[in-house]
Amino acid sequence: MSITRLTRRQFLKAAGATSAFAATGLSFARTAYAAAADYLQKRLAAIYKQDAAMPLRKSQDNPVVKALYKDYLEHPNSHFAHHLLHTHYEDRSASVKKLKAKGIKLKV
């Protein structure tokens, strides 16, 4: 049955059902969002509460970090720190180019 052949009554019925679905769908989505946001809010709040409760709040004040630099790494970005703690990054674009050439669509 094509849309142009709907009777007035059938059209109203379909439109009513569609808008009811849209409206309830939206309200479900809101409930779902609120429930999801709730667990996340609680996890996030715990982090900042813990931060405020820590005796030291700045990285440069960490005594173990100070000892590490004094005994071992010398200073931030030292030659040895670069060797152990820094890295480089690869170009991985060729593999996705191949996928796209095969006709696979991605968001990026």
């Binding site: 996030l44 900042y48 931060d51 030291l56 990285s59 173990v64």
Partner: peptide, 16 residues
Amino acid sequence: DPILGDSTGAATIFCA
């Protein structure tokens, strides 16, 4: 444990 064990508030907020 000591040696690589102490932390700060700055470190714990890394996960937010």
